[in-house]
Amino acid sequence: MPTPRDRARAQTMTDILEIGRRHLAAEGAAALSLRAVARDLGVVSSAVYRYVRSRDELLTMLLIDGYTALGDEVEAALAAEPGDPVDALRVLGRTLRGWALAEPARYGLLFGTPVPGYHAPAEQTVQSGTRLIVAMMRLLGAAHAAGALTEPDAVPAASTALRADFAAIRAEFGLPLPDWLIARGTALYAGLIGAVSADVFDMYGERTFADRAELFEFQLDGLLGIVGAHPDRRAAPVRAGR
């Protein structure tokens, strides 16, 4: 059972994370400062180091927090999906975009420009950081097993090294995906991140598209075509936001 001291420490860590999120949104990841966090926490700067040892540790905390929030959002949306894996891939894309537009600073930390001098510790961030792609790969596996994806007519021959990489991914996910679908799955993932980033970071320009949600539906349609989704199984566009 947690002691009062344990509860107090947990509350302080929660407060530090919340302050870190506010600073991330206001000033950006590169400008994060433990001294500023300590000021907002109402303690001397040396006291905050009892909880967070460095700016890099705070960044890691914020990364895990962001990946966890995104993963929870995606999993909740998929749990409400009736079951068609192609439709669920659309839900995944829409949910990613919706979360990113609502949390642009956190999205930018996860998928934007790397913070100079910071290297995320894989042993701490991989589990939370791969939840989105794990969900996507499982849906691709379900769609393939259901016969909802068509193999392209011409598939380039992969090198021995690349085939070994594909085999390692198959083993990691425990899914019998063919090489072509793993390769195109990476294109789907990169395309989703690219489309969402272009929207969140306003790469189009303010007046280029009147309805970016409608544009995103066309982008989703094209990206699902990359992995072989049958055109007659694609859902009617749904307005997803801005």
Rank of each mutant, 00 (worst) to 15 (best):
V43E: 13
S46K: 12
Y49C: 10
R50P: 00
R55N: 13
R55D: 11
T60G: 00
L63F: 03
D65W: 07
G66E: 00
Y67D: 11
T68R: 15
A69G: 12
A69D: 13
A69T: 14
A69L: 13
L70C: 02
L70I: 12
G71S: 04
G71F: 08
E73M: 00
E75L: 07
A76V: 12
A76T: 14
A80G: 02
D84N: 15
L89K: 05
R90W: 10
V91P: 04
L92N: 10
W99V: 06
A100C: 08
L101Y: 01
L101I: 07
A102T: 11
A105P: 08
Y107L: 08
T113G: 02
T113I: 08
T113E: 15
P114N: 04
V115M: 11
Y118V: 00
Y118C: 04
A120F: 03
A120P: 08
S128N: 06
R131G: 09
L132R: 15
L132N: 09
V134E: 11
A135D: 05
A135C: 05
M137K: 10
R138M: 00
L140M: 13
L140N: 03
A143Y: 11
A145I: 01
A145S: 05
G147F: 04
T150H: 04
E151R: 09
A157E: 15
R163T: 05
A164P: 02
D165N: 15
A167E: 07
I169V: 15
R170F: 04
F173Y: 14
F173D: 01
L177Y: 08
D179C: 10
I182R: 03
I182C: 03
R184M: 02
G185S: 08
G185L: 13
